[in-house]
């Protein structure tokens, strides 16, 4: 059953890893990988049209605005760019998005969120980084809080997460923290990925028609 769709997919996504391989390595099924290709294709041909996702294409897809700078989008783009090439290819797109699948292991979500918030890649989430994240969030939401309120929120969070009190959150402390506060991982699960073949049915419809 998957032969026709795989051949068709291979021709359309030359150079990419076979959907069966991506499906076996991730939380997606083969059909879901193929549906994701619809989304990928739309994104990767939106501005530069070279079949790779550039940062402005990523921003355009997220915000409908290719120029909109956002700390979260920047961080996610850099983490999706597993091969450090400055662009996201289909394999990177699927492997990285898989972490956001509602059924992906919590350990993967926990590790990804840690890297996301470890803005300087030091191996710790530092107070200054958390402050930066909160300020970015306020800026994004057009909210205004006093410096002392921001400080209190950051201090309160650190008092919960930094159990050894050394002023930074290490991966073990982060793991403990998200176990006690699972809502901190809410943005690491995208319900859309549960029904991706419904959201992007056109490829599946075509490939099943061929089958």
């Amino acid at each position: 059953m998957g032969c026709a769709s795989s051949r068709q997919f291979g021709a359309r996504a030359a150079g990419h890893v076979e959907p069966e391989v991506l499906a076996s390595d991730t939380s997606f099924t083969v059909n879901e990988v193929e549906a994701l290709y619809e989304l990928y294709k739309r994104m990767s041909f939106s501005i530069i049209k070279d079949g790779l996702i550039h940062k402005e294409e990523f921003q355009l897809a997220l915000f409908r605005n290719s120029k909109k700078a956002n700390l979260f989008a920047d961080r996610v783009f850099d983490l999706f760019d597993l091969k450090r090439t400055g662009v996201i290819d289909f394999e990177e797109f699927v492997r990285s998005l898989s972490v956001f699948h509602p059924k992906a292991p919590t350990s993967e979500k926990t590790a990804f969120a840690f890297k996301l918030y470890d803005l300087r890649g030091t191996g710790y989430i530092e107070k200054e980084e958390l402050r930066e994240l909160v300020l970015a969030l306020l800026d994004e939401s057009d909210l205004c809080l006093s410096d002392s309120t921001v400080e209190a929120i950051v201090d309160n969070t650190f008092s919960q997460a930094d159990s050894n009190g050394d002023g930074k959150i290490d991966p073990e402390e982060w793991e403990e923290f998200v176990k006690k506060n699972p809502a901190a991982l809410r943005n690491m699960s995208l319900p859309y990925l549960q029904d991706i073949t419904m959201a992007f049915p056109s490829f599946i419809t075509r490939s099943e028609a061929k089958d």
């Binding site: 989304l39 994104m43 897809a61 997220l62 915000f63 409908r64 956002n70 979260f72 996610v76 956001f100 918030y117 958390l130 994240l133 909160v134 970015a136 969030l137 994004e140 939401s141 309120t149 209190a152 929120i153 950051v154 309160n156 969070t157 919960q160 997460a161 923290f177 998200v178 506060n181 809502a183 901190a184 991982l185 809410r186 943005n187 690491m188 995208l190 859309y192 990925l193 959201a199």
Partner: peptide
Amino acid sequence: TNLNAFEIISFSSGFDLSGLFIEKE
């Protein structure tokens, strides 16, 4: 000030990838 910064971040639309899946005109 009892707010937990990571939970606030996690619930913010600016820190969410849902936009990728919303149909654009």
